[in-house]
Design a protein around this nucleic acid. Structure first.
Lengths: 206, 206
DNA sequence: GTCTATATAAGGATAGAC
DNA sequence: GTCTATCCTTATATAGAC
């Protein structure tokens, strides 16, 4: 329960963010939000028109935060491969799942263009960023020319989002880590010792 | 609404399966189930002890069905690569998501060992089957020896589960297809024209 | 076995006092 | 701005008639 020096509206949004992450939209009631925020009914309906309005504010903030965090890693130092690896291995509370991705399993979120928009925008932005990095890697010869940036980016993002599913199903982060490891092994640019300068046409590195 | 020649218990289970797929566990009420099944309160509490009990029957059936369908494709004809490709490309109603995987985003399902068990068992069985196929492919030289069957299997499954997330976020199956395409391009065993029999150490095919 | 009450709590929102 | 009181609907379950 938030309290010190923070506005009530702020506490409502933060409590909603937590509950949306833990229980999703359909699983989160105004009552639960109010209890966690330490506020009464009146406060919520004073600052927001209702549950969807408050959820929208919470989702927007969560989506923006996730996008910024992902882009910080992707725009960090290192080769294209290293930046993708950094993204895949970045610290995660795997069993909690993705606070943005989980919303796509919420029927009421998907049914609302307004609630779904921030989710879509964030995943799409990260995907585009990764696609660009893959294209960079192709230019530098780190990735083979047969790779399609957009497709690989979708695979990278899907591996993360699906990794959460496998981890939560088994109750252990191991499957998430395995999925990431598998993907990195497929992406890995290796030294290709060839005879007499012969070049592996697939990998296009020497 | 089911009716002809099917028992009430059967109609309750099938209605629950549909609703769990559409709205998840927390989003599905006994009332909605009864309406869809065309049954009254009494019938449900006669055949089942309550919502969790009915949901368990529904989840078990859905999990068993999915497992059988996946294994049918994975045990089909073709090379290891082709069988994995067949699994990845098998017909799916992408925007509906995975009826089993989506349950991992349900707080009440994950909180219950009993409800989570069939979900875990099914995903795990498919993963093991794929891992075995990858190992087969390594023995046959179709996949490089540096690949780890368990890890690749997790990547394959995660790409599918995560593909649903991306597709539902964007409201289009395109991202799912892109993720699959990306993964297949990474897995693809290609002819490696080399000079003077030089061998690409990564791909271990000629 | 199935139905129609009935019961208690929770979901979601409004009204009006302070 | 915040609170409490109140409202109507739904969620989940029980009781008892047929």
């Amino acid at each position: 329960m938030y309290s010190r020096g923070v506005s009530t509206a702020e506490r409502l949004i933060e409590s909603t963010r937590e509950l949306l992450w833990e229980r999703g939209y359909v699983g989160t009631s105004p009552k639960a939000i109010l209890e966690r925020a330490g506020a009464g009914q009146g406060s919520m309906y004073h600052h927001f028109t209702g549950k969807p309005d408050l959820a929208l504010a919470a989702i927007r903030r969560t989506a923006d935060e996730l996008r910024a965090a992902a882009e910080a890693v992707l725009d960090g130092p290192g080769t294209p491969y290293e930046r993708i690896e950094a993204y895949l291995r970045r610290e995660r509370d795997v069993l909690r799942g993705c606070p943005v991705g989980r919303l796509t399993m919420d029927p009421d979120v998907v049914a609302s263009d307004e609630l779904r928009a921030p989710v879509d925008a964030t995943l799409d932005a990260i995907r585009e960023r990764i696609a660009g990095i893959v294209e960079e890697g192709k230019e530098q010869g780190q990735f083979g020319p047969e790779l399609d940036g957009e497709a690989i980016a979708a695979t990278v993002l899907a591996t993360v989002q699906g990794g959460y599913v496998l981890a939560r199903a088994s109750g252990s982060p191991a499957a998430f880590d395995a999925g990431v490891r598998g993907l990195l092994s497929l992406l890995h640019p290796q030294d290709h010792p060839t005879v007499r300068g012969a070049r592996c046409t697939r990998c296009s590195t020497n």
